Every structure is written in C-alpha cells, then in structure tokens.
Amino acid sequence: MDESLLSPVLDDDGAPFWEYAAQGELRVQGCAGCGELRFPPRPCCPHCHSFASAWRRMTGRGRIWSYVVPHPPLLPAYAELPGYNAIVVELADAPRIRLVGNLVSGPDAALNSVSPDRFRIGARVQAVFTEVNGVTVPRWVLERA
C-alpha cells in the first residue's frame, strides 16, 4: 500500500477499534452502564457519564448516508487516483453511528475501483478490511442484490 496515503490516527480510546479491525471485526464502543453506543470512541458516555465501556460486534452492514468524489484530488498522494471517494456509512445495527471510509470493489482494490455513477445515497454496503500503512482499516463494498 502507498505510504503517502492518509493513515488513521491511533489513540488509547480508539485502540480496541483498530485491534478488532485487524481481526476482521467491526466493533463499536458502547456504554456498560446505559447501553448506548458511541463513535468516535471516548472515555466517558455522553448519555449517563459512565466511564465503563464494552466493545460490541456489528454485522458490518450499512447504507451510504453521504459521499463525495473530490475533483481535482485534494491531496498530492491521491493525484493518481482520480475518481476516488469518501463515504459516510450509517450502520444497520446502530443507525445513529456513522463511519467514514471508501467504497471499493474489493478489500484490496484501489480507492477509485468503483465508478462514481454507481454511488447512491441509501445503497447497501458491507464492511471489508485491508491494511494501510500497517493499520487494518474498514472499507466498504456494495452488497449484492
């Protein structure tokens, strides 16, 4: 993978997210007190203020809530990837949780592997995982109809 592409910023609160991703699992932090899910991960529940948390496994299914295809590419490392995208996915298991990623044709496919004319708000997607600069990240593929 190209080391000039953006990598996730790792911190203590989000470390379990990336550890589960490395195992091919999509998990979201939840409050062990009130049960509410939260993303991005943080030490305290915004609902009940508990510091107790647990990581809940998600199905990895969701729908495209929003997307953008930047023209021209905004960063030099992406200049060779015209048509790359950034999408916001609303999780099927937790509709208030939205994750940002890329829509690709397969786990290790290029960021521009899906034609922009295939993007639709509400399109169903499934998480897949690939390594970027030593960190396994979720990306998204269109679900088969």
Rank of each mutant, 00 (worst) to 15 (best):
123 A>Y: 02
86 A>G: 03
25 E>S: 10
47 H>Y: 13
91 L>G: 00
136 T>A: 14
114 V>E: 08
140 W>R: 05
63 R>M: 06
24 G>L: 08
95 P>G: 05
140 W>C: 04
70 P>T: 02
143 E>L: 06
9 V>D: 12
124 R>L: 12
131 E>R: 15
132 V>W: 04
77 A>G: 08
15 A>W: 10
91 L>A: 01
72 P>G: 06
106 G>T: 02
130 T>V: 04
108 D>L: 10
51 F>K: 12
23 Q>E: 15
43 P>E: 12
13 D>W: 08
6 L>N: 12
42 R>N: 00
111 L>E: 10
131 E>F: 09
137 V>P: 01
58 M>T: 01
137 V>A: 04
45 C>I: 11
105 S>I: 04
139 R>A: 02
52 A>D: 15
38 R>W: 00
50 S>E: 11
114 V>Q: 09
73 P>N: 00
17 F>R: 03
81 L>K: 11
15 A>E: 14
87 I>K: 02
80 E>M: 09
80 E>I: 07
37 L>M: 14
47 H>F: 13
128 V>I: 08
31 C>F: 12
122 G>S: 08
51 F>E: 14
116 P>D: 05
76 P>L: 05
7 S>Q: 15
103 L>R: 03
37 L>E: 05
49 H>A: 13
20 Y>V: 04
29 Q>H: 12
80 E>S: 14
32 A>N: 12
17 F>H: 15
74 L>S: 00
37 L>W: 08
113 S>I: 08
84 Y>M: 01
73 P>L: 00
65 W>F: 12
80 E>V: 10
110 A>K: 10
16 P>H: 14
143 E>V: 07
93 D>H: 04
47 H>E: 13
26 L>V: 00
145 A>I: 00
8 P>Y: 07
112 N>Y: 02
76 P>E: 11
83 G>Y: 04
135 V>F: 07
120 R>N: 10
57 R>A: 13
143 E>Y: 03
112 N>P: 03
17 F>I: 07
109 A>Q: 11
96 R>G: 01
51 F>T: 12
88 V>Q: 11
44 C>I: 15
128 V>H: 01
70 P>D: 02
115 S>E: 14
35 G>P: 05
69 V>N: 05
48 C>R: 12
110 A>V: 00
90 E>F: 05
72 P>F: 05
41 P>L: 07
116 P>A: 06
82 P>L: 10
76 P>K: 12
27 R>E: 11
132 V>S: 09
30 G>A: 15
104 V>L: 08
125 V>Y: 01
34 C>Q: 09
34 C>V: 06
116 P>Q: 08
133 N>G: 14
